[in-house]
Design a protein around this nucleic acid. Structure first.
Length: 410
RNA sequence: GCAGGGGUGGGAGAGUGGUUAAUUCCAGCGGACUGUAAAUCCGCCGCCUAACGGCUACGCAGGUUCGAAUCCUGCCCCCUGCACCA
C-alpha cells in the first residue's frame, strides 16, 4: 500500500470537521488505522429519497474513490430503511416519509449514478433494511438507552424547531440511532459523510464502543454551495447540477456558478490534486488567467469526471458556439410532423411546440411568441399559428432548439 | 383529557362576502444586457380559445347568498401549549 503520509494527505484534503480538535482526533486515528497496512472497511450511506442525485453527492463518491485507489474496501450503503424515517439533519422541518415502493424504485438508480465515479469492481453495495428491519423493539430500546434526549435537543436543527414550537417527532430521533447501528453491523473502520452528518457519524462511534468495537474514524466533507454561489446546493432550491444531467447541461450549469465558488468546486468536484488546483487559482489571482478560462476548465473537468472521453470536450464546444456565439447547433431535437392528410391544425407552431414538450400549453406558446422568444429559421415570428414546413428550425428562448421533419424521415 | 392555532396556486405565505385567477416572495419562463446558462433591469407565469368568451381552483361534503377562499353545518387531516405520567 502507499505510504501512510501520502494516503493521509490525499484523504484529508477537501474535508471539513467543523472544529479543529475533531479534525486532529480523526486525522490521528486515521493514521493509526493506515499504519495497520490493511484494506480498511470504508462506507458511506445514501438514503434513496429522491431519484436524482446532484453533484454535491459526488463529493463523498470522490472521497470513497480515493480510498479505493489506495486499495481499501468500499461499501456503498443504500439506506432503504433509514429512508423510511427521513433524515432530519439538514432540514428545519420533518421530512416526508417515503413508501417502500418509492424507496425501492429510487434505490435502483442510485448505484448507477454513483458508479459514474466509483469503481464498480471494488464496491460492495448493501441495503440497511437487511439488518435494521430485523431488530426487535427490545433491541431498539437497548440502543436508544445509549443516548440522552439532551444530546439530541442540542443539535441546531432540533433546537431551532423546539424554539419555534414546531413538531419534532420521536421517529426523527431514531434516525441517528439507525445510522449508528449500520456502523456496528458492518464493523466499519471509516465512515464518510457530509458535515451535516457529523452527529450521526459520531453516534456510530458511540454504539461501536458500546459493542466492543474500535470506533470508526469519521470523515466529513463540506456541503457544496449551489449554482447561486451562496446557498447549499439542493434540489428544492433549484440551484443544483444533477449527476444525470447530460454533458451540455452539466457543463453549462457549472459555467453559471459565480467565480467566488471556483476554489470550492475545483477542490471538491474535480480529479485535480491539491497542487494543480492551487496552480489554477493562483494564475487567476495573478491575473494570468481570465476567470472565464478558469471556469471553463472547471466545467470541463467536472463534466469529464463523469462522462466518457470526448463528451466533455463536445459540451465545451457546444457552449462556446451556442451560448457564447449564439450560433445554431448542428444537432437538435427533432419533431415529426403529422402527415399531409391529417387535420391541418397539427402543423401549427403552437400545436407542435406543445406536442414536442417545449411548452406546457397553448397559452404558454402564445405568451412565448408574444414575448419574442420564438424564431423560425432565424427569424422571429409573431404568429403562433404559423403552419410549419418540414425542415424548419425553431428556436425557443436562448437555447432550446427543435427541427421539424416530415413523417418517415426521422 | 383540556385549551388554542391551522389546512390557499411548484414551495413559502397574504387575503375574512363582490373591484380576487386570487397581494408578495422564491423557483420557473422570456427579453435586454453580459466573459457565462452569473449578476442586474424589465416583462410573463391555471386550462381551453384566433378572438369574444368559457371552464377549473383556495382540505372534503353540504348549506346560506344575486354573489363565498372568505359566513354556517358536518367530516378529514396537521400543529402547539397544558394536564396525565405518584
Amino acid at each position: 500500500m502507499a505510504p501512510v503520509d501520502e494516503q493521509l494527505s490525499v484523504l484529508m484534503w477537501g474535508t471539513d470537521f467543523g472544529d479543529a480538535s475533531t479534525r486532529q482526533t480523526m486525522e490521528r486515528e486515521l493514521a493509526e488505522l493506515l499504519e495497520q497496512d490493511r484494506p480498511l472497511r470504508v462506507y458511506c450511506g445514501y438514503d434513496p429519497t429522491d431519484v436524482d442525485l446532484h453533484i454535491g453527492h459526488t463529493i463523498t463518491f470522490r472521497k470513497l474513490r480515493q480510498f479505493q485507489s489506495f486499495g481499501h474496501d468500499v461499501t456503498f450503503l443504500i439506506g432503504n430503511f433509514t429512508g423510511l424515517v427521513g433524515d432530519p439533519s439538514d432540514k428545519d422541518r420533518t421530512r416526508p416519509m417515503l413508501s417502500p415502493d418509492q424507496l425501492a424504485a429510487n434505490s435502483q438508480t442510485y448505484a448507477a449514478q454513483a458508479f459514474r465515479i466509483l469503481d464498480p469492481e471494488r464496491t460492495t453495495v448493501v441495503h440497511n433494511a437487511d439488518w435494521l428491519g430485523k431488530l426487535s423493539f427490545a433491541e431498539v430500546i437497548a440502543l436508544s438507552s445509549k443516548f440522552t434526549v439532551a444530546q439530541f435537543l442540542e443539535r441546531d436543527n432540533f433546537q431551532l424547531r423546539w424554539q419555534r414550537h414546531e413538531a419534532i417527532h420521536l421517529s426523527e430521533f431514531m434516525y441517528a440511532l439507525m445510522q449508528a447501528y449500520d456502523a456496528v453491523e458492518m464493523e466499519t473502520d471509516v465512515q464518510i459523510g457530509g458535515t451535516d452528518q457529523l452527529f450521526n457519524l459520531l453516534a456510530g462511534r458511540t454504539l461501536q464502543r458500546e459493542a466492543g468495537q474500535r470506533p470508526q474514524v469519521v470523515i466529513t466533507t463540506p456541503l457544496l454551495v449551489g449554482t447561486d454561489g451562496t446557498q447549499k446546493m439542493s434540489k428544492s432550491l433549484g440551484n443544483f447540477v444533477a449527476v444525470n444531467d447530460v454533458p451540455n447541461d452539466m457543463y453549462g450549469k457549472v459555467m453559471s456558478v459565480p467565480d467566488s465558488a471556483l476554489d470550492e468546486y475545483f477542490t471538491l468536484l474535480t480529479d485535480l490534486n491539491e497542487s494543480e488546483v492551487r496552480a489554477v487559482l493562483d494564475a487567476v489571482d495573478a491575473g494570468e488567467m481570465p476567470p472565464m478560462d478558469a471556469k471553463k476548465r472547471l466545467a470541463l473537468e467536472v463534466t469529464r469526471s463523469m462522462y466518457p472521453d470526448g463528451e466533455a470536450e463536445a459540451a465545451q464546444s457546444y457552449f462556446e458556439s451556442t451560448i457564447q456565439r449564439s450560433e445554431t447547433p448542428d444537432e437538435m431535437e427533432q419533431f415529426v410532423l403529422p402527415s399531409d392528410g391529417a387535420e391541418d391544425s397539427g402543423r401549427r407552431l403552437d400545436r407542435v411546440l406543445v406536442a414536442a414538450g417545449v411548452a406546457a400549453s397553448g397559452g404558454e406558446v402564445r405568451r412565448l411568441v408574444k414575448q419574442g422568444a420564438v424564431s423560425i429559421n432565424g427569424t422571429r415570428t409573431d404568429d403562433f399559428a404559423t403552419e410549419l414546413q418540414a425542415g424548419d428550425e425553431i428556436k425557443v428562448g436562448r437555447h432550446r432548439f427543435l427541427r421539424v421533419v416530415a413523417a418517415g424521415s426521422a
